[in-house]
């Protein structure tokens, strides 16, 4: 059976979250919020989400499940 590492699960979760949060940030850029949070102009969703997506992608690839011998 394929052995799945906890780091793979973490990578997948971060990748999905990163994509979702970055997409939400870009959506906000196009459609500004009626009640934006403080420091909204820094667009934290975009760069924080992007960092999560990159970290998640690295872990997903690095710990991709392998077949146990």
């Amino acid at each position: 059976m394929r052995e799945i590492s906890i780091w793979f699960f973490s990578g997948v979760l971060f990748l999905i979250y990163g994509i979702l949060i970055t997409a939400a940030g870009i959506w906000e850029l196009i459609h500004p919020l009626a009640h934006p949070p403080v420091l909204y102009h820094l667009h934290a969703s975009i760069w924080w989400g992007a960092m999560m997506a990159v970290a998640g992608l690295v872990y997903t690839i690095r710990f991709w499940p392998h077949r146990k011998s």
Partner: peptide, 10 residues
């Protein structure tokens, strides 16, 4: 205060 949609859910 600081988090918009998505980040707040996180």
């Amino acid at each position: 205060r600081y988090c918009g949609p998505g980040l707040l859910g996180l």
